[in-house]
């Protein structure tokens, strides 16, 4: 009995795992193909529907009836990038600090609680952030803008008329920073916790202070992960629609961050104007969406390149 049963069982186990193998292979292949097909369809939709705006002579009503598309879309692209950059500049240091605190400084129980709170922040819908930004943050920023203008007005970023309602691109950036914070924090925390304890203890054993230990072991180990988390956060910031729509008074383009009605972003432009748009205007808005798609693509390619080069460096070191 004892000698035969494993023999009879082993082949059976092999066949089931072969079936399981096939099923799983099929599933992962289908998943991979579906995601590519969906992406291709979205890209195709954006491209075909935006042709009348991009090339009005060939596909649209003729150049005389169309607006200058690039003149229309570049301020929107610039605004989108600026607001995302502000959000990341503000959120990254805070996210680093919070995740290090959770992973390396805080007492365990306390750390868990903070972790939960951060995860909860990620679950708040963006319309709530938008309302909060519009009703609470914007009025709070008014005196700050006035101060920035009075004291640092020589910098182009703080030139121009300071807003009297606080509905500016800088306020939008602050709200976005709060929104992307949980994503960055959650990812960084997980990565910081993955750092091999042996390395950390070795560093401490060599007489490093805690900060030196973090600098020597945690950051190098987590670099690729930190960059990935920043890129994920950037993706959210670039595409955020509702909150920006509610917080920002849109306009054309200016370098001033504290003037209302001077900047706009692609997602909020589309959200504001799509409901009543038709014909050529709709094509313009979809084309603006295509531009956002392109920006995101470029950002992701750059991020991949950075992550890969770091990974190679890390391999070379070890």
């Amino acid at each position: 009995m004892t000698t035969t049963s494993p023999r009879t069982k082993t082949p059976a186990r092999n066949t089931t795992s072969a079936v399981g193998d096939k099923v799983f292979k099929g599933m992962s292949w289908t998943g991979g193909v579906i995601i590519l097909v969906v992406l291709a369809f979205v890209a195709l939709f954006l491209l075909t529907r935006s042709l009348p705006a991009i090339a009005p002579d060939t596909f649209g009503p003729g150049a005389d009836q169309a607006i200058d598309f690039w003149g229309y879309v570049w301020p929107l692209m610039a605004g989108t990038v600026i607001v995302s950059a502000i959000a990341l500049l503000l959120a990254t240091p805070v996210a680093m600090g919070v995740s290090l605190f959770i992973s390396h400084y805080a007492p365990r129980r306390f750390a868990n609680t903070i972790g939960y709170v951060i995860d909860l922040l990620a679950a708040i819908p963006s319309v709530v952030y938008g309302a909060w930004g519009m009703l609470v943050i914007a009025p709070l920023m008014v005196p700050i803008y006035q101060w920035l203008h009075d004291n640092l007005g020589f910098i182009p970023l703080f030139a121009g008329d300071p807003s009297t309602t606080g509905r500016t691109i800088l306020t939008s950036g602050v709200v976005l920073a709060v929104m992307v914070l949980p994503i960055m924090t959650a990812l960084c925390r997980e990565i910081f916790l993955q750092v091999p304890h042996l390395q950390e203890e070795a560093a401490l054993g060599l007489g490093a202070t805690r900060w030196e230990m973090i600098k020597m072991t945690v950051f190098p180990f987590a670099r690729a992960g930190i960059i990935s988390s920043i890129m994920l956060a950037l993706g959210r910031a670039l595409g955020e629609t509702m909150a920006v729509t509610m917080v920002l008074s849109p306009g054309g383009f200016s370098w001033s961050l504290i003037t209302s009605g001077a900047n706009a972003t692609i997602p909020s432009e589309i959200a504001l104007n799509f409901p009543e748009a038709f014909g050529q205007r709709q094509a313009e808005l979809i084309a603006a969406g295509l531009m956002l798609f392109v920006i995101t693509l470029i950002v992701n390619v750059i991020a991949r390149a950075i992550v890969n080069s770091h990974a190679k460096k890390a391999e070379g070191l070890s």
Partner: peptide, 8 residues
């Protein structure tokens, strides 16, 4: 050309 406050 006219910058100003606006809302939805």
């Amino acid at each position: 050309e006219l910058t100003g406050e606006s809302a939805q």
